[in-house]
């Protein structure tokens, strides 16, 4: 594993990695889906997490955000546990994880980004509304602020989610597959946003699926398949050998990784016969 020059992106005076995972094993129902991950993601980087389906990419970021049970190891965000750093982290879940027929409009969804700072019970007011409006504007979505969310296209919905993360006004942005199923305009908007965030000294970590576009968008790479295969500066890490180590023998990986799924599948097949 490369622990080589970590902090070339870090602004002077903050040599702390944005995300630091130590000996991290994540298990669902006693079955590990990520094994002993050691990883530092430098502050100020645009990092892609890449790996095959079932490699544990989403699990990795969920673990970093305290949303998945840790069987071993620890997570720190800018040197402290996640719990204490929540306000520094913005999160963009997969678009498909929510019901877009929910009765609300784009502005309201974006305002949800301010709830974390507000804390329990306090209501969002004018200030929060303005933050949300600005975030929408930044993603070219100001005209859609009062549009019911089910009437937005897939790309527009993704931009609403990004605006919500922006409204969190974070230092670290964690995004789960933001480029999936979006139109060209949205893809452009997301790339511009990523660049701008980096220019402002923010850190962005994206789960990414598209090997072709990755080199254009990111400057730091984590190759993941149940464990860290390689990580480091993008160009140096994005090698054919590393990629084949990540994706090679993949069917084998899937074959035994998810005991539960396999057992159920087997059961269903058996019932079918």
């Amino acid at each position: 594993m490369t622990h080589a020059p970590l902090f070339e992106h870090a602004p002077p005076g903050t040599p702390v990695p944005a995300v630091s995972l130590r000996d991290l094993t994540v298990a669902y129902r006693e079955t590990p889906v990520l094994w002993d991950v050691d990883l530092d993601i430098p502050a100020g980087s645009l990092t892609a997490i890449i790996g095959p389906n079932g490699a544990g990419k989403s699990t990795l970021i969920k673990a970093a955000l305290g949303l998945a049970p840790l069987a071993a190891g620890s997570v720190s965000i800018f040197g402290e546990p996640y719990k204490e750093q929540r306000d520094l982290v913005g999160y963009v879940p997969q678009r498909g994880s929510v019901d877009w027929d929910f009765p609300t409009n784009a502005l309201d969804v974006v305002m949800m980004g301010t709830y974390g700072r507000l804390g329990w019970i306090r209501r969002p007011g004018k200030a929060q509304r303005e933050v949300a409006m600005r975030s929408l504007e930044q993603l070219g979505m100001a005209d859609f602020a009062h549009r019911q969310i089910s009437q937005l296209s897939g790309g527009q919905q993704q931009r609403v989610f990004l605006a919500r993360a922006l409204a969190q006004d974070a230092e670290l942005y964690v995004m789960d597959e933001p480029f999936v199923g979006v139109d060209a305009t949205t893809e452009r908007a997301i790339v511009d946003l990523l660049r701008e965030l980096q220019a402002r000294g923010k850190t962005v970590v994206c789960v990414h699926h598209d090997l072709e576009s990755a080199p254009d968008y990111f400057d730091w790479l984590v190759l993941l398949n149940v464990r860290i295969i390689a990580d480091g500066p993008f160009a140096a890490t994005f090698t054919p050998e590393n990629l084949s180590r990540t994706y090679g023998g993949r069917t084998h990986v899937l074959g035994r990784l998810d005991h539960e799924a396999v057992a159920r599948e087997a059961q269903e097949i058996e019932l079918r016969i």
């Binding site: 305290g66 949303l67 609300t104 709830y115």
Partner: peptide
């Protein structure tokens, strides 16, 4: 607010 967030996007609420 909390119930709204929980209903719409429980994962985000957790984060």
């Amino acid at each position: 607010q909390e119930f709204k967030l929980l209903t719409f996007d429980p994962e985000f609420a957790g984060s």
